[in-house]
């Protein structure tokens, strides 16, 4: 539509130029005048008539083209709306101003950080390249568990959810692409697993009723205020290291979760060695890594 419009506009301008040329031609010949002799008078009138005919043709061309153009008002540029007073209250000015202010602030902050991070690198670039080239010579299959696509992580978690029915899992992504798993174990405890790909980076266990205003991020870092969950966090961190298989990340995640779900009986299962629940203010907070049986921290040796 718009292209047609411009084409016909260009055509119209061309026709107008032609018309102006032919009109100018007529007046030129009139102004110049010509020596009229008896025999060429008729020829001169004929030439004049011809040039008038060209003007007439050009004029009808212009008329034809201009009729195909749309009326003036609809092709006027947006600038004419400037004269109409906008109701400032109806435009989302405040939000836009604040948004752009915040955005530009953020950009300048981030640029500052980036500059300070990159400055040392600019100097040491050559040496790092060199050392990495050297490292390549030592051939070793590096673990791949950390480099897993987010979709693959989600698929893996979905599989594990079926295998470990006691734990309800929720995936969150508080810090970009890597997932943080929110685990809820019955009515006993909550745990956060920070994953890098499929490798467990950190585990933090907290009480079911311990809440933070910030849903996912803070819980990962703030320790539980209860001794028992701090102990369980220690046990779980030890277990993460025990169940680490560098080349089969899904397996290590599964074995860890399988072991971890035994904490469902954290408060209700007696110690396998001393046969009691209570010792030094705590229930049995250790689960054997092979048999998954409950022990007090001091009873397990």
């Amino acid at each position: 539509m718009a292209e047609n419009q411009t084409e016909s506009l260009i055509q119209a301008i061309r026709c107008t130029q032609k018309l102006r040329a032919s009109v100018a031609n007529v007046f030129q010949s009139l102004a110049d005048g010509c020596p009229v002799e008896k025999d060429n008078a008729v020829a001169a009138i004929g030439a004049f008539q011809e040039s008038l005919l060209v003007v007439y043709n050009d004029f009808s061309d212009v008329e034809k083209v201009s009729s195909s153009l749309q009326p003036l008002s609809s092709v006027t540029p947006n600038s004419i709306y400037l004269s109409i007073d906008p109701a400032i209250d109806k435009l989302p000015v405040y939000q836009q101003i604040i948004q752009s202010y915040k955005w530009s602030n953020k950009v300048s902050d981030l640029a500052g950080y980036a500059a300070s991070v990159m400055e040392p690198h600019a100097k040491s670039k050559r040496t790092t390249q060199y050392s990495s080239a050297q490292a390549k010579k030592v051939k070793r299959i590096s673990p791949t568990g950390h480099a897993v696509a987010p979709t693959a992580v989600e698929a893996c978690i979905a599989r594990l959810t079926q295998k470990v029915p006691d734990i309800s899992m929720k995936i969150t992504h508080p810090l970009g692409s890597h997932a943080v798993l929110q685990l809820t174990l019955g009515r006993i405890l909550k745990a956060q697993l920070a994953l890098r790909g499929l490798i467990i980076e950190r585990v933090n266990v907290r009480g079911l009723t311990e809440t933070n205003l910030d849903e996912s991020q803070m819980e990962l870092w703030s320790r539980s205020k209860y001794d028992v969950f701090q102990k369980v966090t220690e046990s779980a961190t030890a277990a993460v290291l025990h169940f680490y298989f560098p080349h089969n990340a899904e397996m290590s995640l599964y074995t860890f979760l399988h072991w971890f779900q035994k904490f469902r009986t954290l408060f209700s299962a007696p110690c396998q060695k001393c046969g009691k629940h209570y010792l030094n203010g705590l229930p049995p907070t250790w689960r054997d890594l092979r048999s998954t049986e409950p022990y007090h921290d001091v009873c397990r040796q």
């Binding site: 109701a87 209250d89 109806k90 989302p92 000015v93 405040y94 939000q95 948004q99 915040k102």
Partner: peptide
């Protein structure tokens, strides 16, 4: 009402 709400958003805290 919308005009008032809009003005209030501009005048009050947490405008964003």
């Amino acid at each position: 009402k919308d005009v008032l709400v809009h003005r209030l958003r501009g005048l009050c805290d947490n405008a964003d």
